[in-house]
Amino acid sequence: MLNHRQHHLNNNKILAIVPAYNEEEGIEQVIASLQKHTPYADILVINDGSTDETGQLAENAGAMVLHLCCNLGIGGAVQTGYRYAAENGYDYAVQIDGDGQHNPSDLDKLLNGMRETGADMVVGSRFIEKEGFQSTFTRKLGIDLLVGLVTRLTGKRITDPTSGYRLCNRRAIALFAQEYPTDYPEVEALVLLDNYQLSFKEIPVVMNERQGGVSSISPLQSIYYMCKVILAILIMKTRKKKAWEMSHDT
């Protein structure tokens, strides 16, 4: 297994992208955990128009912070991080939720999985080994529906398509910096990668319940969310490649 020294010896630049909207209850703990478990990674908090002290607390904790003047939503915030990664020459970028659900201690597993499989993106799945927080019953039903649809559309088995714990290499960073879904992008991003013949693999991780803040999807929005995501990924599957492929296809 690669240790912290090996990451430095390989001269890899790694960026942890932390999208955060009103996460003042947990953002300091997330940054502290990243600093403890992944000292080899730079930390970039995308303060997505928060109306609380999220941005200031993140700065005080020692993270780089980009303050967005208005709330773009998770897609816009994450793409801002990927653009920063692309413009500053990072070899890897990992998404880490600002609510404490993701364990930075699992990042080594994602890095090892990417190097072993050669995948362009590695997704941390809570459902492979079924340890830790497993989501609510109603959301798990929706996730199972998306599992079947994404597997059929891409021909690749996936167990946790809504997981936001994702590690990308340079090719995936370049794509997402130019084109990234909005609203609730995790599922669409898998289809987008497949459209461009980029690969993704899953690695088992353990997730926590959110440590604070409010989920972007309320129970009353769940049905609307499912319908919107299903329609979005079907449309995504029919879209043609853009100019990105001309300069990045191998």
Rank of each mutant, 00 (worst) to 15 (best):
I17V: 15
P161G: 12
L110C: 06
E188Q: 14
V205Y: 00
L220H: 08
A174F: 01
D144K: 14
T51Q: 14
L153I: 14
P104H: 08
E188R: 13
Q101D: 06
I143T: 11
L198I: 13
P181I: 14
D91H: 11
D194G: 10
A61C: 03
F200T: 02
K240E: 09
P39G: 14
L34P: 00
M64V: 05
R166N: 02
Q6E: 13
Y180T: 08
T136P: 02
D48E: 09
G155Q: 09
R170Q: 07
L190P: 00
G118C: 10
P204K: 13
C70Y: 07
D91E: 12
K140M: 09
M64H: 07
N88A: 06
R171T: 05
L146D: 02
E188W: 00
T159F: 03
Y165M: 14
G148Q: 05
S125G: 09
R152Y: 10
N22M: 01
P39A: 13
T238G: 03
G26F: 00
D249Q: 11
N195C: 09
P219G: 11
Y84H: 13
M121H: 04
A189W: 00
R152S: 13
V187C: 09
T238V: 09
L2M: 13
I96Y: 03
S105H: 05
D42I: 05
L107V: 15
A243V: 11
T154L: 09
S199W: 01
R166D: 01
E129W: 04
V30Y: 03
L2E: 07
I143P: 00
R126E: 00
N12R: 11
G49P: 01
L66Y: 09
V187T: 13
G55W: 00
E179I: 11
Q95N: 12
A20R: 01
V122D: 03
L68E: 02
G100F: 00
P104N: 12
Y92L: 15
G73V: 06
S50H: 01
D42E: 13
F137R: 08
K130R: 10
I43S: 04
L193S: 12
G148P: 02
H102T: 11
K36N: 12
D194N: 15
G142Y: 02
N195V: 04
A77W: 00
I17W: 01
H37T: 08
R83C: 12
G124W: 00
D249H: 07
D160H: 04
V65L: 04
I158K: 03
T138V: 06
L220T: 13
V78M: 12
L190F: 01
G81L: 07
T80V: 07
L167Y: 02
I235G: 03
K156C: 06
N169T: 05
H8W: 05
D97M: 08
I223K: 14
A85G: 12
N10H: 06
M207P: 01
D144Q: 14
